[in-house]
Design a protein around this nucleic acid. Structure first.
Lengths: 327, 327
DNA sequence: ATGAAAGCGCTAACAC
DNA sequence: GTGTTAGCGCTTTCAT
C-alpha cells in the first residue's frame, strides 16, 4: 500500500476501500502513529494556531479574557499560544516576531503602551490581528473593547448623585487607552456637575495605588470619594483604606472600574463597573477567526461591549441618593 | 550566493564573509523575511514549545501557576501553548493528542480526575511530562505539588486551638489528589483532638459551596467552624455566610486553603493557607525544561513546596487562643 | 568560506 | 480507488 493511502485514511478522505482503511487504522493504533503537524502545516501553508499576547495572565481580568478566547478557539479547532508582554512594547515586539515565525494564523493582542507602527509591516504581509481591550494606536484595525468612557461617566455621576464632589480619579498613565477613556468619562461627569477635577495618575498596580491612596488621604486636599481605574488600583486603594481605618462610604465613597469576585460580599459591598471580560475575549477571537477563514472581509471593525454599573453600597446609603449633597 | 549562505547568516553561524553577511542582513530587512519555524523544527526534529494543560485559567490559582510557567519558559526561550481541560479527562486527552501532534518538547499537566494510563504510551514514546499541582494517578512521574496534608492539618489544628470542635470540612471529591490530601490533614487533626469529623463533599465551585454552606448552617448539626478546600469553595462559603448574616468568627470560624487577594482586608481578615502558586509553576517548568535539555536524568522527582498558614482574624480573637474551648 | 544535494513528514495534483 | 511525483522551507553533510 502506498504512503498516500495511509495519508488518506488518517485525514479521513474518501476513496479508500474499507479493508485498507481498517488495516491502516490498525497499524496507526499499534504503532501509536501521530501525524506531524509541523510537516502538515508546512505544506498546507497555514496553521490552526492563534497567538495571544496579554500584559499579565495573573490579573483576573485578563484571565477571564483568555478564558473567552480559549473557548472560541477550541470550538473552531484552534490552539492558542500565550505570551505575557508585561506592558512592554519591547517584549511585545519580540513575541510578535516569534509568533510570526511560528506562522500563527492570527494574533490577539492587548497592545502595550507605545508605538505600534512596526505592525503595519506584519499586517501588510498578511498577518491577521485583532486588538483586545485597547485599539492599536494609530492603526485602523479590528478591535474589541468595552465602553470605557460611558462606564467611567456613569460611575462618577453615581458618586455625584450621592452628593460627593471631591472625587479623586485614581488611574494609570494616559498612554494606555482604557485609562485615558475612563479619565475622559470622569472629566465629563465632573464638568457636568461643576466639580473640580482631582486627577491622580499612579502606577496602576496594587502597590502603586496603595501608596498613592495613603498619600491622598493624608494630604491637604482630601477627597470624599475615589474612582479606581482598574481592579489592581481598586485592590490597592481598598488595602490602604482598610489599613488606615477609613470607613466606606461614610468617610470616603469608592467605585472601581472592573468588577471582581467577592466585591458583593465585601464590607461594605463595593459598587463597581462590570466589564464583560469573557465576552470580550470571545468576541475578539470570533472576529479573528472569521477574518482568518474569510467569513469577515470588510473594513476594520470595532466591537464595543457595554459595561454595567453594579450598584452596591460603597458610594453611600440609598438615603442620600439625589439629596442636596454638601461638599 | 547560495541558499545555504543566507541560512548561515540567519542562524548566526561562522564562516561567512562580512560583505555577504551584511548583504543578507539587508535583504532580510528589506524583504521582511522571517524564517519558518515549521520547516526549521521539522528538520531539527524538536520544538521549543511546551504544552500547558490546566483546568481553568480563570481560577487565580492556575493563573498564578501559568505566570510562573511562562516566566521560566521565556527565560529558556520556550513558547507555551495553553489548554483548559475543565477537569475532564476526555478534553485533557484530546489536548494531549493535539500537543503530541504539534510535537511539543514537553508537557505540563494538571491532571483531571480519572484514568491516566493512556499517558504511559506517550511517555514510553519519549514525551516529557511534569504533573503540576497533582501527581499522575498510578504513574511514577515527575511532579510539583504543595504540602497539602500538613497545610490542612495546620489549618484544622489552628481552629481547634481556638476552641472549635464542630469543624466542617467543605471539600471536593476525593478523586482529586489535592482534596483527598487536605481531607487527610483535616482528619488527622480532628482525630488528634478527639473531635468528630464533619465531612461535606461538595462540588468545589463557587455555586456548589454557596449552596452547601447554606444547607450546612440551616441543618441540625450546625458547625462552629469550616475549612474550605480551595479558593472557589472559600468564595462560595463566604458569599453564603455574608448573605445569611452569619458573623465571622463569632458564630462561625473559617479557614481557607489557597490564599487570595483582599483576604487580608476582608471583614474580618481571613485566615488562609497560602500556596506558592507562582513558585509551583516555576518549579514544574524548570524541571520539565531540565528534562528536555538533559540536565536532569535520574528517576522521577516529586517537588513538594511548603505552604504557610496566614493567621488573620477569621478563626477567633487572640484571646480565645489555647483557651479551654467549650464545644 | 561557500555551495550542492539530500531529506525532515507531509499533501496536492494528476496519472492509472 | 490507488499510486507516483513534486515540493513546502529549512538544515545537515560533504565537496570544493
Amino acid at each position: 500500500m502506498s504512503l498516500k493511502t495511509a495519508s488518506r485514511v488518517v485525514n479521513n478522505e474518501r476513496y479508500v476501500r474499507t479493508v485498507l482503511r481498517e488495516q491502516v487504522a490498525g497499524a496507526v493504533q499499534k504503532l501509536g502513529y501521530r501525524s506531524n503537524d509541523l510537516a502538515r502545516h508546512l505544506v498546507l501553508q497555514t496553521t490552526r494556531t492563534i497567538g495571544l499576547v496579554i500584559a499579565d495572565i495573573s490579573n483576573p481580568f485578563y484571565g477571564a479574557c483568555a478564558l473567552g478566547v480559549m473557548r472560541v478557539a477550541r470550538r473552531h479547532g484552534y490552539t492558542v499560544v500565550l505570551n505575557a508582554s508585561d506592558e512592554g512594547v519591547h517584549a511585545e515586539r519580540d513575541y510578535v516576531a516569534l509568533l510570526v515565525q511560528q506562522r500563527v494564523a492570527g494574533l490577539l493582542l492587548v497592545p502595550a503602551p507605545g508605538d505600534h507602527t512596526y505592525l503595519t509591516t506584519e499586517i501588510s504581509r498578511g498577518l491577521r490581528i485583532v486588538a483586545l481591550d485597547r485599539p492599536l494606536q494609530g492603526l485602523e484595525n479590528d478591535c474589541a473593547i468595552v465602553e470605557n468612557e460611558p462606564g467611567a461617566f456613569a460611575a462618577t455621576d453615581h458618586l455625584i448623585q450621592h452628593g460627593r464632589r471631591r472625587i479623586a480619579f485614581l488611574g494609570g498613565s494616559e498612554s494606555i487607552f482604557t485609562y485615558a477613556m475612563r479619565l475622559e468619562g470622569y472629566r465629563r461627569a465632573m464638568a457636568a456637575a461643576g466639580a473640580a477635577e482631582m486627577i491622580n495618575l499612579v502606577n496602576p498596580t496594587v502597590e502603586g495605588a496603595l501608596a498613592d491612596t495613603r498619600r491622598l488621604l493624608t494630604g491637604r486636599h482630601r477627597p470624599d470619594a475615589i474612582l479606581c481605574v482598574n481592579n489592581r488600583v481598586t485592590v490597592g486603594a481598598l488595602t490602604a483604606l482598610v489599613q488606615m481605618g477609613v470607613t466606606i462610604p461614610d468617610e470616603l465613597a469608592l467605585v472601581g472600574f472592573d468588577d471582581f469576585e467577592l466585591a458583593d460580599v465585601f464590607h461594605p459591598p463595593l459598587t463597581m463597573v462590570r466589564q464583560p471580560a469573557i465576552a470580550l475575549g470571545m468576541n475578539a477571537a470570533t472576529l479573528l477567526i472569521d477574518r482568518i477563514e474569510g467569513r469577515e472581509t470588510g473594513a476594520p471593525r470595532t466591537i464595543v461591549l457595554p459595561v454595567e454599573l453594579m450598584i452596591r453600597d460603597s458610594c453611600g446609603s440609598h438615603d442620600d441618593f439625589r439629596s442636596p449633597g454638601v461638599a
